[in-house]
Computed example of a mutant assay.
Amino acid sequence: MTMNVRRLGGWALIVGTIVAAVGYLAANLLAPGSGEEVFRYQYWPLFELIALIGDVIIALGLPVILTFAGRAPKLHIIGYTGIFAALVMLNVGEGTTEAFVKPYLVDHGGIPAEEPAGFAAFGGVALLALVVGSICLGIAILRARTLPWWIGAAMIVSCIGGALGLPGAWFLLPDCIFFATLFAIGTFAVRGRTERASATIEQAVVSPAG
């Protein structure tokens, strides 16, 4: 991946995470009520659409993660694959249902109590991909040392926080941390940190031999 393409991918992560975070925060913090009532909020589809646009932009820039593989290429590939699958399946796939299908159903007979056959399995696979992808990518970043250690640590923390199921509006915190890590990766990609970090690593390896 050339530097220009890497920077383009980095900008996609930066812009995508900002747009997605704004959409999700607006939808979940401004919508009144709870349960099915949130889907009656007039701006719910708009805010969810903004989040979906951000998710698509993130998906386009996500391959830039692989340029930071360093000494942990396999873990980076697993992490990238898991996060990409979860992003497409949960944020884009299920997000489309949340944005447009459920608001329609609320005013046309209500949302069915039972989910369609296979939907739970679909969501389970997506969540598994997210957990495996986040943990593997976090460990990969810590091992590769081409990015600051706190990015890898934050990626793992976001996964743990999501699994804990934080109460109230705090449930948004793991997602915000997750988007913040992708934003940080995008920032380093735009700055061309990969090449500088790689050069530092090579120098550290060569110096003792010299």
Rank of each mutant, 00 (worst) to 15 (best):
R143I: 09
V92Y: 01
P116R: 00
G109V: 02
G95Y: 01
F122M: 14
V101S: 12
V125C: 07
G123M: 07
N91M: 10
I139A: 12
A129Q: 09
G82R: 03
E115W: 15
G118S: 03
D107H: 11
V131H: 08
V101N: 07
V92D: 00
L128R: 13
V106K: 02
A117D: 10
I139D: 11
A85Q: 09
A129E: 12
A126E: 08
L90C: 01
E114Y: 04
L137I: 02
G138D: 09
C136R: 01
L147Q: 14
A86C: 14
G95M: 02
G138K: 07
V131E: 07
L142M: 10
A121H: 13
G118D: 03
I135P: 00
C136V: 00
L105I: 00
G133W: 03
L128I: 09
E114F: 03
A126F: 02
A140E: 04
V132S: 05
G118A: 02
L90K: 06
G95Q: 02
W150D: 05
V92P: 07
D107W: 09
V132A: 10
V101Y: 07
V125E: 07
L127M: 09
A117R: 08
V131R: 14
A86W: 12
T96Y: 08
N91R: 14
F84P: 14
W149I: 01
T96S: 07
T97H: 04
G95H: 02
V131K: 11
E94G: 02
T146E: 10
F84Y: 09
G110N: 07
L137K: 01
G118P: 04
P148K: 15
E114G: 01
N91Y: 08
I151Q: 13
G138L: 06
A144Q: 08
P116G: 00
H108Y: 00
L90M: 06
A126S: 10
A140Q: 06
I111S: 06
V88K: 04
W149F: 00
E114V: 11
T96C: 01
R145A: 13
T96R: 01
A144M: 03
A113L: 02
L137N: 01
I111A: 03
L87Y: 03
E98W: 11
A120G: 04
N91G: 12
S134V: 02
E115T: 14
P103D: 14
G109Q: 00
G138E: 04
A144V: 03
T146M: 09
P148G: 07
V106L: 01
F119G: 10
I139Y: 13
E114R: 08
M89H: 11
L142F: 05
